[in-house]
Amino acid sequence: MRPKATVFLMAMVLGPSVSLQTTAAQDDHQKSSPLSVTAQFSTVLSAGCNSGKGMVVQLHYTGAQPLRGYLVRLVLGDSLTGKVLTEQVIQEIRDLREPMIVNGAEWTRTFCSIVKTTEGAPLTVTAKVDVLRFADGSIWGPASLPVSHQLIGTMDGMDFSAKTTDLERYVSPILPPVGPVPLEGIQFQTIGPLRFVSGVWRDEGGQQMLAVQATNVAATPIRGYVFTASFFDPTTANHIRRVTTKELETHGNPNDYLLPGATWVAGAR
């Protein structure tokens, strides 16, 4: 799965990380959350909860920026034994055409529980905001959960049909013969349903960059794929950096999927 190519790439190509969303999230998560969450376990719930037990979560947004979506992780545990009984996430998102969550908004969520609890056991609920997504596209929080990244991606995917975003341009495949194609030091490798052709491509300034194109060698159309190029020092084999590329059809049009035998070109790295 990790065939090592022998083509080389100039280190000057290796600019800042392209995973902007993740970076921003990591940078900001030390600050306090503008979404405050308090949660408790209740055994006296009525409407909608057959068991009568569940978690009551109160949320209060105090941020200056309109909030478009959030994901909060809840952990229900026994405070005496420290045992975690269950984990839960709350997440909500809005379409761009809908009103955002504004400063001062308060709301409550109640989750009925089917977790068996001991009578009289001291239960505690710990709430942690994992990610907030604001109307301007910026992000707050550690985004430590895979579902947080799915949440971010879902809003991005919804936006593709509403407007042309920089992200859409970034993830949209280039159709040959347009785009950077490998011209020197060409390497071939087939990984699963994709046949990669990679090598050096020179931009207008003569700068050498890695160009990668992928051909669908399977019998089924492909909606999208993700691959990572990892760069190493050729002398020491020390890792330099990795660049992850996402390529996908962004409007749900099957005619534009990567059909069997067809090729997509990625932006040069």
Partner: peptide, 29 residues
């Protein structure tokens, strides 16, 4: 020039089936 490797993390087919380890957060996105 630096050396490099290419690793495939995710492929999503038209029928919804998938291929790949899905290690990266980019695949979740």
């Amino acid at each position: 020039l630096a050396s490099y490797t290419i690793t495939l993390d995710l492929v999503v087919f038209a029928d919804g089936s998938m291929f790949g380890p899905k290690w990266s957060s980019e695949s979740d996105e």
